[in-house]
Structure formats: structure tokens, C-alpha cells
Amino acid sequence: MRLSKLLPFALALVGTLAVALPASAAEVGKPAPGFDGTDSHGKKHTLADYKGKWLVLEWLNHGCPYVRKHYDAKNMQALQAKWTDKGVAWLSVISSAEGKQGYSTPDKANEDVKANAAKPTAVLLDPKGVIGKAYDAKTTPHMVIINPEGVVVYDGAIDSIRSADQDDIAKATPYVDKALEAGLAGKAIDPNQTTPYGCSVKYP
């Protein structure tokens, strides 16, 4: 084959490869992966709904001792109340698969909100783990903060001490609280990426 005949082929190849871009994942500093979820009242939530608002995603499993640590000590509820009062949206996401620990029907999720006096904006039910995997959620709790521009600005642990012991909450650096304080004040978030701790998310 003459090289001149190869040219259109080469150009077609270049064009094909140029559009084969890598897939997205939650990454600090990058736009958050889109999601499309249903909450415990049957209402739809997408990332686009929260454009212009600060948004917190909290991975939740009420059977997990690390989640219990923060709910039994009322730490999680206090954070939810403090920040939703300031206009921050807070979505608790349950990515436990049916039959696994933490799996919730809509009724069960609503009961848990009531029993724990939790104050999230909504509880998203993600039994197929689609949202969890899009955000690469590893543990419960696993916390993600998204700014009004839709960019992930924090990804990681709720605080600095990896334990299931309530006594450690007061001693720990409250990463999420600090991140929201800094973020809403227009200041730099540091650290903006930590290793989440807790139980593994019970994916299908």
C-alpha cells in the first residue's frame, strides 16, 4: 500500500483515539461524578439539583460499629443539624446490598432517621452500589464534600482517629466540620483528602 493511501486511515485512527477519554471518578479538585438516586420518600435526587449549594455525602450503615460510634455519641446528628441549618445539603447514602448489613427499605431508613434523630436532607437508597462505586466509597462512614460549583473539595474520613470508640471523638480533628467551616468561609481546605475508616461498604 502506498503511504499516501495510508493517510486517511491514520487520520481516522487519530480521530477515534482522541474521543476515547478516560472515565471519571471522584477526585478532589475535579468535578464530582454525577448521580441519580432515589431517597427514602421516593424522591429523585441528582447532582445537578445541588448546583449552587454545598453538598455533603455521608455513606451510612446503621449496623456498623463505626457509624454507631458517631450516631450514638450524637456527633453525626450534630454535624448534620449544624450544617443543614447553614444551607448545606446533606445526603446520607446507603450502599448496602439487599441481605447485607445496613441494607434499608424506605420504611427502615425512615425509622432509623427517627430513632437516631438524624438530620440529613435526605437518605439515598443505593442497594446496587451505583453511587457508592461512582464515588469509590470504601467505608462507612465515608465523607465527600462538593462545593457549589460541583467540584469535590473533600474526600475521606469524618475525623482523624480510626476507632469505634466514642471517647476518641473529642480527641480527634473533625475533618468534615473543619472542611465545611473553611469551605463556606472561602478558605483553603486542609487536609482535603484523607483515608476513610470504618466498616467496608457492603456492596453487592
Binding site: G63, P65, Q101, D165, K202
Partner: peptide
């Protein structure tokens, strides 16, 4: 001593 023992679920 503290520990965490897990299968699917975890028990501290």
C-alpha cells in the same frame, strides 16, 4: 487491648 473482628459485619 482493642481489636476489630469482621466477616461481612464487624464487631469491635
Amino acid at each position: 487491648v482493642t481489636w476489630l473482628v469482621c466477616k461481612e459485619d464487624c464487631i469491635p
